[in-house]
Design a protein around this nucleic acid. Structure first.
Lengths: 398, 398
DNA sequence: AGCAATGTTTACACTGTGTAATTATCGTGC
DNA sequence: GCACGATAATTACACAGTGTAAACATTGCT
């Protein structure tokens, strides 16, 4: 009757406690116990360990009710992590702590046709500058993360930057030397950041597809029970929805990206693709200029909906969050997506079975997503150095 | 340095030992220890437990080498499981043991347009007949499994049998009463059966997509590290690949299924859809009759490849196994699939990055897949009654 | 100051594992 | 037919990590 769930390694237990703190931004012990499904006794033991290691801190708060808790547990500001983000426009490097503070930022413009050698050169320089900054302050990085669009498709290669990926990860590993570094898909970092980092109101809390429409069209299935670092990107951009249609940079015809990417719509509205997302609300005003523009964009949204419906047929989900330029469109125009869904989604679009929501593209806050991802990876490792851990060592051998 | 990986609940440990036995069909202790990453000491303890419970048996064998092992451990024939499979043609019920022996089979024809009431009625009758058989022999079922095409798409509903799924699972649960019963997608059961049940040579051993082209077109990602019961079906059939194309039974136009399902090709070759898969090798001879037939079928295979490429763009995998009518086609005709892949798969088809293989559709051995799935579910539960297990009970509350 | 209500820590028992010592089994060679 | 070598299989013990329950601490209220 006791319903015990005993076995967990210390690392796992620490990880789930720390993850809970990262997601909530700070919690009282009883809450923590509930979230992690541990007893307060265990929480007490783990926290005293983590406090000794200066990974977490206690802040005294007045009790919220009679006899209530007084010690708010938060992640420590002593742990330094780094995040590096590559987008089609720039390479951003940042250093911060586990609470989300960004203490150092450096952004370099890059071209969309960036070659691998060129990138490596730039990367090395940027990291060197960052390390100078950390060395000056005596900071030691506990974790770094690099977010790259199109990353993580194994043998299929990167559809956005056609690079040698094993070489890239080796290169990055070497640059960072002793510091553990995680490389991930930009959209994974972004989804995790939006969903969990408490920087704004996120429209859904259950499993859903996060779809970003930028230079590429990529999604992630945000599965609430799966660790973020196991999320895998969902490259929607190169689904062929119109045989023999518009030519795409991938060499095929009729891809979703050929119709709905920033580059594709920049041709319609006559604004450089790099400017579109930064326009924010003024985007809509801009559209008033051309009468046929909105209609043309609605057609593109319909095609996006068609591809999205196809994707949802493969992997049914009851909720989708869309970010990117479609989120800047007037809400009546966005309805075109539903028309597309009606052409492909099994059973058609039905608000009771599919919730569609939009979230503003978060231009300007790079490399916060990568930084958050670095914090997440640190936390997932239980705040223990992966290199000295026997279990990980064992797995590496195997 | 020791590389210990201690924490596992007894249930998990038992499950991994039993799963290993199910997959291999019997093993010696040292092999078992390696496969489960446990020490021989643990294996010894677990096996003595399982032997007492009569879930496993020991068969004496002459040692394969000096000082070699003599006791081959196998799953017991004492544990009875039931498998029920619904296809568009029939409802098959079987009872067997964990070794794959099928002791009782009953098959009833059903129509493709089966209504839910009608199905429930038939199901109840078939199960009653089966229970009469088990009662006569004093058998007590330890686990049952039901495999249904199109099952498991949550709120999205079943695209093949448009039924009320919560009602269906409730109904099935009630029918079986005390016996634990798992309901799953037919293609999941089939993939697991082909891949793990040692009934034939399976072409790949790594992660891959298993795609079955029958009345529907469905796939499963067979991920070697994920438990089979967590596999989720991949409904490729209703991806729209030709806007405004052929009408599909789902109400949309241009779905993969409208071009490549058994029903679709039965119109081309003039053979009833229910007969196609059972023709086996004579299928090819049949095609010789019509000159344009093969060309028409090749076109359909191209479209299948197009849809497959789209799916692989979303979820990159380096290996695909195809079963169903395409596997009966002459190998030169199957090359049309590659043409389709070349239109959609990022980077085009490349034998070094994508291995395509074919496996004969296993008509006639239903309900072996469901039976195997039942055995798998039993094994996954550690051979313990899930109802008396505190952990499961806890999870059910949550 | 004392009390009620809750939070926090600690002593102890329990589960399940690995290590290492012990015991069992088999084939081989004399 | 019996001792020996090689490996399999079991068992005693130590250790990690959890939950339970009791002890102790803190707070606000009267």
């Amino acid at each position: 009757m006791s319903g015990r769930f005993v076995p967990r390694s210390r690392r796992e237990t620490r990880a789930s406690v720390l993850e809970s703190l990262l997601r909530t931004g700070g919690a009282f012990r009883p809450v923590l116990a509930r979230e992690t499904k541990l007893t307060e006794a265990s929480i007490s033991r783990i926290l005293s360990e983590l406090r000794k290691e200066r990974v977490v801190e206690e802040v005294r708060r007045s009790a919220p009710y009679v006899g209530g808790p007084t010690a708010l547990i938060t992640l420590s500001k002593n742990v330094a992590v780094a995040g590096i983000e590559l987008s089609n426009n720039r390479l951003s490097v940042g250093v911060g702590d586990l609470t989300g503070t960004l203490d150092y930022v450096d952004r370099m413009p890059v071209s969309g046709q960036l070659g691998q050698d060129e990138f490596e050169h730039l990367f090395q320089e940027s990291v060197a500058a960052m390390q100078e900054w950390t060395d000056q302050r005596g900071l030691i990085l506990s974790q770094a993360a690099v977010a790259i669009p199109g990353y993580g498709r194994g043998a299929a290669g990167n559809p956005i930057f056609p690079w040698d990926m094993p070489r890239l990860t080796r290169f990055i590993d070497e640059i960072f030397g002793d510091v553990p570094v995680a490389v991930t898909n930009a959209v994974v970092a972004q989804a995790a950041f939006h969903r969990y980092s408490r920087t704004g109101i996120y429209p859904v809390a259950s499993d859903h597809l996060f779809l970003f429409v930028g230079h590429g069209v990529a999604g992630v299935i945000v599965d609430e029970t799966t660790p973020v670092d196991a999320f895998s990107a969902f490259e929607l951009g190169h689904m062929v929805i119109e045989r023999g249609g518009l030519a795409c940079r991938c060499g095929h015809r009729g891809c979703v990206e050929a119709y709905t990417s920033l580059r594709a719509i920049s041709k319609i509205i006559g604004v450089p693709d790099s400017d579109i997302l930064s326009k924010g609300d003024s985007f809509i005003d801009m559209l008033d200029l051309g009468a046929g523009m909105r209609e043309a964009l609605r057609e593109r949204l319909l095609l996006l909906g068609l591809g999205l419906g196809n994707a949802l047929n493969l992997h049914p989900l009851s909720s989708v969050v869309i970010s990117g330029w479609p989120s800047l469109m007037p809400s009546e125009d966005r309805l075109a997506i539903l028309d597309g869904l009606n052409e492909s989604l099994l059973g058609g679009y039905d608000a009771s079975r599919l919730a569609l929501s939009f979230i503003a593209p978060s231009i300007g806050n790079d490399p916060r997503a990568a930084l958050y991802y670095a914090a997440y990876c640190f936390v997932r490792s239980g705040g223990l150095d992966p290199r000295t851990d026997p279990q990980t060592a064992l797995e590496e051998i195997a």
